[in-house]
Design a protein around this nucleic acid. Structure first.
Lengths: 123, 123
DNA sequence: AGTATACTGAGAAATCAGTATCGCTTGTCA
DNA sequence: TGACAAGCGATACTGATTTCTCAGTATACT
């Protein structure tokens, strides 16, 4: 991640503009509108580099390959639209799950995923 | 899933006895104590059959291959021990996440995963 | 007990996300 | 501007998981 290339710029822009966790394939599709020749290998390379330098984080959802979002956001969770497949960020968090823990278990972190219809796919 | 075989019995027993979501590899290891010749293909075939007939359900956690647990339990969530890697069932649920939904989004279901140390791995 | 056939185990093959390779391109810096 | 190396795109490869294949085995039914 030393040089400033059209490809990397396009990928960063796409992630900032769409502002939701994107799969490598989604990044490829969106960034190709800016750099049509873009290859999937460059997307993977760049995402990996962004994560290594701390600019992006991987978002893992059950049964799904990792998606990526820009880092620096505060604690949040995700919504997975069961119709269009897009993942969105959610604000807020119930916060305390310790009442669910059996004796002797210690929780360090948690993940919440809501599933349903996003605005565009609403019935 | 028509015949009653030692292999299938062993797999069902293991799932009932351990009573937590098990990966195919975990099922294989545990069931081989009952039927040492058991092969991984039979584990996959049997798990698939159990899911199809409704006796088991797949449990998907972020970044993990599916695990399987017997069905018929009431609404619950899971705890993933970051030390030993085992997954446990948790009772209870905060229930209402609608306050997290943006305008126009509709939630149908949710998943919660807690990460930390289980009793055996506690510090 | 005899028989049809569902089931099994081992290994090959399929799947698929992600990575490595390599010749060509392009950003950076003197 | 020239040169060097980082970066690119295409594609072959990898590794992990799951499914398929097939010859031999075991179950269920008569």
């Amino acid at each position: 991640m030393e040089r400033f290339t059209r490809q990397r710029q396009a990928i960063r822009e796409v992630m900032a503009e769409l502002d939701r966790p994107l799969s490598p394939a989604e990044v490829l599709e969106a960034a190709r509108r800016k750099v049509p020749s873009l290859g999937i290998a460059t997307v993977y390379r760049t995402l990996k580099g962004l994560v290594e330098e701390g600019s992006a984080v991987a978002v893992e959802l059950p049964g799904q390959a990792p998606r990526y979002e820009l880092s620096g956001k505060r604690h949040h969770h995700h919504f997975h639209c069961t119709h269009c497949g897009k993942v969105f960020e959610l604000e807020g968090c119930p916060g305390d799950f310790s009442f669910m823990l059996p004796q002797g278990f210690q929780a360090e972190r948690h993940e919440i995923v809501l599933y349903g219809r996003c605005t565009e796919c609403g019935v």
